[in-house]
Computed example of a mutant assay.
Amino acid sequence: MYSQHTGKVSDKWSSYLVVYDRILKSYRNQKVRLLEIGVQNGGSLEIWAKYFSNAKLIVGCDINPKCANLSYEDPRIHVLVGDATSDKVKSNLVKLSKSFDIIIDDGSHYSSDIIKSFAKYFPLLRCGGVYIVEDIHTSYWKKYEGGIFYPFSSITFLKHLVDVINYEHWGVKEKRESILKGFFKKYNFQIDAINLQSIHSITFLNSMCVIFKSEQENNTIGKRCVSGLVDDISKAERKVNNTLSVPQDQKNNRWSDFDLPADEKFLE
């Protein structure tokens, strides 16, 4: 479908097409609402409209004022012009739809924009939806507010979300959002605990990050499940069947008892 497209130009890395087909095919026949940050020539919106033939709404957002001249015959496609990280654009977006099933960030690729866009639009993603960040290879480049060891790059932020998913095992008296407070201060934004609790999984691929959202009860490790009757080596397993995980106290673990992540403390 992508290679045969003859309309407006779309620009994607070849590996992305394989990933998209794998993770989005389960949504393909649904009445999805899709948001793509970064429109450029507008071709991807046409392709999404073909791929999701039953889509209810496809919205593109771009800061380039020239995108206001883009027109589509498909009434499901809308283009908003402005800075996606601004309250004004979000307000206009919510007028079109209060929630989305798929959100794709193919915007400026600056770390600050990627992070602030996630904070602003992940709350609009419905449970069962997917949030995709493209081109995170730019987080390794200084021009895009990055560097392989830079504490405030977009990929560092996304890596911290892996720790957020595993919050119940930290073993310290900190809140989920504590690991992000440096980002909150650096880029002047907030993410509340409810939305952090709804992060179900994070998958990293070459230059891409895929984040699935789900209800909080689906995001815990759950209860211990033990099956079988023969326990010749250890008798302990059957005793813990149907019990909850209890984190080990880590208050005396120097690697858990920082007030900031270690890479941020390096800047102090």
Rank of each mutant, 00 (worst) to 15 (best):
D259F: 03
K213M: 05
L24P: 13
W48I: 01
K142W: 09
S214D: 15
T6E: 09
K95F: 08
K143D: 15
I37K: 12
C61V: 15
L158M: 13
W170A: 02
D163S: 05
N69P: 07
W255R: 13
I191V: 12
L57E: 05
D21F: 06
S44V: 08
A119I: 01
K50S: 10
L96N: 10
K116R: 06
Y2D: 01
D87C: 07
C209F: 03
T243F: 03
W255Y: 14
A262Y: 10
F152H: 00
L93I: 10
D105F: 06
V240K: 05
Q4P: 06
D83F: 07
L229V: 09
F184N: 00
N54L: 01
V210D: 02
T6H: 06
Q248K: 12
D83Y: 02
S44P: 04
H5I: 06
A68L: 09
F157I: 07
K181M: 11
H109P: 08
L70V: 06
Y167H: 08
S117E: 13
V9A: 09
I179K: 01
S91Y: 12
E46V: 02
K8S: 06
D163R: 12
Q197N: 15
Y121W: 04
C209Q: 03
I132R: 03
S99A: 02
K120L: 03
E73C: 07
T220N: 15
Q190V: 06
